[in-house]
Nucleic acid binder design. Structure first.
Length: 863
RNA sequence: GCCUGGGUGGCGGAAUUUGGUAGACGCAACGGACUUAAAAUCCGUUGGCCGGCAACGGCCGUGCCGGUUCGAGUCCGGCCCCGGGCACCA
């Protein structure tokens, strides 16, 4: 072994060895049960960022752990290669998105390889390859045939200057990001996927996903949002205005109805009243996101229209209100201001009447004029509601629903919050939607034989409109049905389509004649999926939906794509800045800043290294280009080596929490590896090691051996079950500390040390595979550490003769006692009361009870 | 606004499942050893307050307020602050 830890050589040698052995190749049906470990595929943005490194290191640790436990492993990698950033880069630099993307992939692939991940690169997939997106198109056509895909209008952000549809992130404070022009809402035809047809199943199946975090399941359930309620018709001369409500019991308290600005009744009112038209127009401005709509000031306008209350026959005014969402329910609501917060606020603002129809079960009806807030409860009883007075929530709802049904003006139904998935994007760098528009034949699907519809790769967008639409060789085509000239669809698909099934294609990416084949049913479902919490809803829900669509077409034999899910936290770093001047805020990279500490070690100030003058500290934030606080993994790998970076990432925080970047923490990780290296060098330099004879150990040796095996048990549990890699690493560090502090040189001391170092090497292999490979050989092994099995704790070594228990008096720690491991309860109680440090606290007091928690503590309750 | 997490020393974090020794492990800081010197390395101290020459002991302490319990970082109720998502960023 080399005297010192030279990571560059060690890592290059280890990787060459694995490469030669094909150690990361996965083959169907190879030895052991299969295990599919998958990380969310990266967007090829240019360089790896720390979030990627964290994600893929977690995946690699899990992969290598299960491989050492005899599983047949698949860990693939691919590229989510379509998307907006490539077009933005193209606008900025004039490079076609394809070239930019392929260059980025090449660089980032090299980076991933330098981190030593056990990835089967022979299965690599890029979603911008025609061989991949051909199957997006193929399945889309199948969905069209089955009615799962369909066409309807949808609302988009429209930049009137650039004549372009904008993504939500391109709308800044209601204006286009490039033009600064106020953005308008615009209705355009789009294609949708009927995810709502699967709402019930997607919701119900969450209960059968024990391997998913509760938080993700809760978020998905709320997103799908099943509401049971009543659909009510309010008749008017042109028919009946439909509303949906979960509070039909309060129907007698409805004092007006409100419709969304996009509702047909609003259009009708606008045609008669310029003030309504103006308000509808005002609502057309501004963004389309739910956050914007929900936080905007609640505004509305009265119309001359009225509708008839279905039970009382009263005439209720129709308002147009910006808080009613066209996308949910019927785009209209009945307003019961006394018992709904939003209606209350709106009614107070516009002086609309309130009517109290619910009272507390043990109280009287409140005077609506005295209300300071809406009285919202399902635990009250009805009042001021005629024949329904005295009924509770459920009985009231049932009675009112029954009466409405009898009149043909209502029925119970379920309403979902989930909306169908609009997949049309008016953008170039995406998968073309395989349709042809013919004046005679309408929308004609591209025949399967003509797939894929290949996206031309040499166009360069300029920010105005979709370059595809201006590119005649793409647009102009022949109608497959009538053979006459026709126009090709130029919208492309949402990139979430690409990522909804890529994990299946890894199993069979070489199959050019089918989307998936039997190998998919060997590898899938994914055993462990790992990715950012920001994907908790959309990506994961779309994938669950897409998998079910494929199942129903007989393409795959499973329902859920991901059996276990681990959502990793983000990577943060310090933010430093200076304000003022014409430049506004300037952000400085933490590398350019020097921190000053006071005597207690607190950070007292920060100065820019370049000029020695202070900079403002703005706390921790997600690493990002805009805050200039990113750290380049490549620099770190070159400076410290891949193992050090991997070790730091695993040690600094548990995977689900945010991780705060710390260069000194990285240095600490390297210090540990150097110390380990040095310890093993010293150990092996002392010559051949005798065999261990466990029955010949003395007390101190038995203690050390117990710690070795306790560490095996703990690390196995932490890595294999809990995924708390930070505590696994801490236990490994403790073991190294213990071994190096037991410096005996008797034969059994050295034999024990050999066991300790072999154990440390094996336990560390998933986290720092390169150095583990070198240590394993240094310790005298001939085969790769990747072939070594995961160690098992020896139950005999774990046995203890005596236990230390904590003694509390009234819950306060007062002392410790050592008892035999099999001591009886009475003996433990006696020992606790006799303990000198406990005595003063029980003396002269009445011992009321003694709580004994086996193996842990004794609590004496005394007064 | 709605949905969802989180808050523990100077800092990252530990205390697992089912309430049972708060502060493991590491970083930073300080003191010491080695060195001509520095770096590196090694050893030691390190939640706060109080008492003691010392060994050691006492009290307080897990965002805030209240509750349940023999016992609460952990459970319950109410608040404050920070993060993720909100359907065209990925």
């Amino acid at each position: 072994m080399q005297d010192s830890y030279r990571f560059a050589e060690i890592e290059a040698d280890a990787r060459a060895l694995w490469e030669k052995a094909g150690a990361s190749r996965a083959a169907e049906g190879a030895e052991g049960p299969k295990y599919y470990c998958l990380c969310m595929l990266p967007y090829p943005s240019g360089r790896l960022h720390m979030g990627h490194v964290r994600n893929y290191t977690i995946g690699d640790v899990i992969t290598r752990y299960h491989r050492m436990n005899g599983r047949n492993l698949l860990q693939p990698m691919g590229w989510d290669a379509f998307g907006l950033p490539a077009e933005n880069a193209a606008i900025k630099n004039g490079v076609p998105p394809a070239k930019w993307t392929y260059d980025n992939i090449a660089y980032m692939r090299m980076q991933l390889k330098s981190l030593g991940y056990a990835i089967d690169w022979s299965r690599e997939v890029a979603t911008c390859h025609p061989q991949y997106y051909k199957w997006n198109q193929w399945l889309f056509l199948r969905m069209l045939e089955k009615g799962i895909a369909y066409k309807k209008t949808g609302t988009v952000n429209w930049d009137p200057v650039d004549q372009t549809v904008l993504a939500n992130e391109q709308v800044i404070d209601g204006r286009g990001w490039r033009t600064g022009a106020p953005v308008e809402k615009r209705e355009i035809p789009m294609y949708y996927l009927k995810i709502t047809a699967y709402a019930e199943e997607l919701l119900g199946a969450l209960g059968r996903l024990p391997g998913w975090p509760e938080r993700v399941k809760t978020m998905q359930a709320n997103w799908i949002g099943k509401s049971e309620g009543v659909e009510i018709g309010f008749p008017y001369d042109g028919g009946a205005l439909k509303v949906f409500t979960t509070r039909a019991d309060t129907l007698m308290g409805a004092t007006y109805v409100a419709v969304a600005a996009e509702h047909p009744l609003a259009a009708r009112a606008a045609a008669q009243d310029p003030k309504v038209a103006e308000f509808v127009e005002e609502c057309r401005r501004g963004g389309v996101t739910e956050a914007e709509l929900a936080t905007q000031e609640k505004k509305g306008v009265a119309t001359a229209l009225t509708v008839t209350h279905p039970l009382s026959g009263a005439q209720l005014p129709v308002w147009v209100a910006n808080y009613v969402l066209m996308g949910y329910g019927e785009g209209a609501v009945m307003a019961v201001p006394a018992h709904d917060e939003r209606d209350f606020e709106f009614a107070r603002r516009y002086g609309l009447p309130l009517k109290t129809v619910v009272r507390a079960a043990d109280g009287a009806a409140q005077d609506p004029r005295a209300l300071t807030e809406a009285f919202v409860t399902k635990d009250g009883v009805l009042c001021n509601s005629g024949k329904y007075d005295g009924l509770a929530y459920q009985a009231g709802t049932d009675a009112i629903a029954a009466d409405l049904a009898a009149k043909g003006l209502g029925q119970k139904r379920v309403q979902w919050r989930l909306r169908d998935w609009g997949i049309s994007r008016q953008r170039y760098w995406g998968c073309p939607i395989p349709l042809i528009h013919c004046d005679r034949c309408g929308d004609v699907p591209v025949p399967d034989a003509d797939l894929p519809v290949v996206l031309p790769e040499d166009l360069a967008p300029d920010g105005s409109g979709n370059p595809l639409a201006k590119y005649k060789p793409f647009v102009e085509c022949i109608c497959p049905t009538c053979g006459k000239p026709a126009r090709r669809e130029t919208d492309t698909m949402d990139t979430f389509v690409d990522s909804s099934w890529y994990f299946m294609r890894y199993a069979c990416r070489d199959n050019d004649s089918a989307m998936v084949d039997g190998r998919v049913n060997y590898w899938l479902p994914v055993d462990q999926y790992i990715g950012g919490i920001e994907h908790a809803i959309l990506h994961l829900l779309y994938s669950r939906f897409w998998t079910r669509v494929m199942r129903d077409m007989g393409l795959v034999a499973f329902d859920e794509p991901f059996t276990n899910l681990l959502t990793q936290g983000m990577v943060l770093n310090h933010i430093f800045l200076r304000r003022g001047g014409s430049a506004g805020i300037t952000y400085y990279s933490p590398e350019e800043v020097e921190l000053k500490h006071d005597a207690e070690g607190r950070v007292s100030s920060a100065v820019l290294k370049a000029d020695g003058r202070p900079v403002e500290y703005d706390g921790m934030g997600t690493m990002s280009k805009s805050k200039n606080n990113g750290v380049d993994p490549q620099m770190l790998v070159e400076k410290y080596g891949a193992d050090t970076v991997r070790l730091f990432m695993m040690f600094a925080a548990p995977p689900e929490l945010t991780l705060e970047w710390s260069e000194s923490g990285v240095e600490g990780a390297q210090r540990f590896l150097k110390r380990l290296w040095k310890a093993v060098v010293e150990h092996t330099a002392a010559g051949p090691v005798p065999a261990l004879n466990a029955s010949a150990l003395d007390g101190a040796q038995r203690d050390l051996r117990r710690q070795i095996h306790e560490t095996i048990a703990k690390v196995s549990d932490d890595v294999g079950r809990r995924y708390t890699f930070n505590t696994a690493v801490a236990a490994i560090m403790e073991l190294l500390n213990a071994v190096t502090r037991a410096p005996g040189m008797r034969p059994q001391d050295r034999a024990l040390r050999q066991e300790a170092y072999e154990t440390l090497t094996l336990l560390l292999t998933p986290v720092v595979p390169h150095i583990a490979e070198a240590l394993w050989r240094g310790l005298g092994r001939q085969t790769s550490v990747m072939e070594a099995g995961w160690p098992a704790a020896d139950p005999a070594a774990l046995k203890r003769d005596t236990l230390e228990l904590v003694v509390q008096v009234n819950g306060k720690l007062r002392g410790h006692i050592r008892v035999a491991a099999d001591a009886a309860r009475e003996a433990i109680e006696r020992a606790a009361l006799a303990e000198p440090s406990v005595q003063p606290f029980v003396q002269g007091k009445d011992v009321k009870k003694i709580v004994v928690v086996p193996g842990k503590l004794v609590n004496v309750v005394a007064a």
